[in-house]
């Protein structure tokens, strides 16, 4: 290298020096991110992989015995398990729907109005999320006993709605807060009564939030174990059944069902994101 080239060589290096921390980020942050992703997906990947494992005894072992799709073909072979899954789907479906119906107006009230007790409502919602499930489950059980309610699907749904509302309300409220207030004013301005404005303008605009809230509620509900175990009575849901089966060995169908639930969840979340993009 000649000395003449030196200045030209240093000139382009200067901006790179300025990007020092960025260059660190270019390697460290992606590696870090991928490690976190690995950490979170490994259990899921294991579940999916082992749903294709052979299990001659009908009980899952964590030894790889060869590929098979037979558990997918016979996924509904165990009637009790199928029944528990159906119960879980009924519970998750109805509690996410009910909590969306109850949580959305709550979110609108919190986002758009100032009223007596608004701060209290807000506090209750956060307490609801923060409260330990054991406490909630135990207290709901004593409530149901006091009210002399027979424990079963209905009490499970009541219990699940009570913790799902908070999630729906928070997700939907975030969506409403992000909306320009004048959009609702514009609807009134153009002759829409409050109900029509809600139906034709606010509801379609917050629908992605409501769906996201419902998905979250569905996910919370379908794998709740602690609260459910308090209020289920003789009824078994999918998590309760799996927990009971652990002592004697888990049938591979559990992995298949887990995989299917996961896939449905992913698909629904993707559809929601896609719809949101297309609208915007």
């Amino acid at each position: 290298m000649s000395t003449v080239e030196l200045p030209t060589a240093t000139v382009p290096r200067e901006p790179k020096q300025g990007r020092g921390p960025l260059r660190l980020g270019r390697f460290v942050l992606p590696v870090y991110t991928w490690l976190v992703i690995l950490y979170t997906v490994i259990p899921i990947v294991l579940m999916i992989v082992y749903s294709f494992n052979q299990a001659p005894s009908g009980r899952m072992t964590f030894q790889w015995l060869g590929f098979t799709t037979q558990w997918y073909q016979h996924v509904f072979q165990i009637p009790d398990l199928t029944n528990a899954l159906v119960n879980s789907l009924i519970v998750a479906g109805s509690s996410s729907l009910i909590s969306a119906i109850i949580g959305t107006p709550l979110a609108i009230a919190l986002a758009r109005y100032r009223y007596l007790g608004r701060n209290v409502t807000e506090g209750v919602i956060f307490t609801n999320i923060a409260a330990p499930s054991v406490v909630v489950g135990a207290s709901l059980l004593s409530l149901f006993i006091t009210l002399n309610l027979n424990r079963g699907l209905v009490t499970i749904i009541i219990a699940h709605v009570s913790f799902c509302i908070a999630f729906v309300a928070i997700v939907v409220r975030a969506r409403i807060v992000g909306l320009d207030r004048s959009i609702e004013k514009a609807a009134y301005d153009l002759g829409a009564t409050p109900w029509v404005a809600f139906q034709k303008v606010l509801l379609p605009l917050i629908m992605p939030g409501i769906i996201a809230g419902m998905l979250l509620a569905f996910a919370m509900s379908i794998d709740d174990f602690i609260i459910t175990s308090f209020v289920a009575g003789q009824t078994l849901t999918f998590p309760l059944w799996v927990y009971g089966a652990v002592k004697v060995g888990i049938p591979p169908q559990v992995f298949v069902m887990g995989t299917l639930i996961f896939l449905i969840g992913v698909v629904l979340a993707l559809v929601n994101v896609f719809m949101q993009r297309r609208r915007a």
Binding site: D180, S182, K185, A186, A187, V201, P204, L205, R279
Partner: peptide, 8 residues
Amino acid sequence: QSYALFPH
């Protein structure tokens, strides 16, 4: 001022 058009 913000136009407040209905984006949907």
